[in-house]
């Protein structure tokens, strides 16, 4: 059971400050955030109760909901990063037309790959511009993992790499389907 600290509490009289701590003018290590004092070989720091910051990095596996589909890009609200929810709300992601699939990149029509409301699995391609992260679905296991039919509200089932079907109405729609491992 280790010590819970508030900002300003002295962690140690001398030493190296890690994350969540700082050294004051007299050389003492003080906490700067609320959390639990952690002593390690290289110094002493504070681990926050909310857990470490979950932020998308290049190569991370993300899940998100498609917000809108434009001609050149689809906008995604990132809801999970490597299976963990980001602290303090979601991040914005963008799947550009050239990043949807690995083959026949020039002939991609985005509205035949995603629709608003779909849940997609994607990889972080780059940190993108100031507004959003660039995501890619150019891999077999990436793409739409869950789509619901507009009228029936039923979850649609994949029937091929490019199509999903509503089990009630039988209607077939186009998607970039992800291979979901059981």
């Amino acid at each position: 059971m280790s010590r819970v600290v508030a900002p300003g509490d002295v962690l140690r009289d001398r030493g190296v400050a890690l994350e969540g701590a700082r050294v004051d003018a007299l050389g003492r290590v003080r906490a700067t955030t609320c959390g639990r004092a952690v002593e390690r070989d290289d110094g002493v720091g504070v681990e926050r109760a909310r857990g470490p910051l979950v932020v998308p990095r290049v190569g991370d596996d993300v899940h998100g909901r498609v917000l809108r589909v434009l001609e050149r890009a689809a906008h995604v609200d990132i809801a999970a990063i490597n299976g963990r929810a980001p602290v303090g709300g979601g991040f914005a992601g963008t799947i550009r037309r050239q990043d949807v699939r690995a083959h026949a990149v020039d002939s991609v029509e985005l509205d035949r790959c995603f629709r608003a409301g779909d849940v997609v699995r994607a990889k972080v391609l780059s940190l993108g511009d100031a507004r959003s992260f660039y995501l890619t679905t150019a891999s077999d296991e990436l793409g739409v993992v869950r789509a619901t039919h507009r009228e029936s509200g039923e979850t649609m089932l994949p029937v091929s790499w490019t199509e999903v079907q509503c089990p009630i109405t039988g209607e077939v729609e186009d998607r970039k389907v992800a291979r979901v491992d059981e």
Binding site: M1, S2, V4, V5, A6, P7, G8, D9, C34, G35, R36, A49, R50, G51
Partner: peptide, 22 residues
């Protein structure tokens, strides 16, 4: 008072996250 309330809040947050005991 503020310091005590911040520590209590930190403990409560840790408990809701079902982390190891703080």
């Amino acid at each position: 008072y503020l310091r005590i309330s911040l520590r209590a809040r930190t403990r409560a947050l840790a408990a809701t996250r079902a982390l190891e005991k703080f």
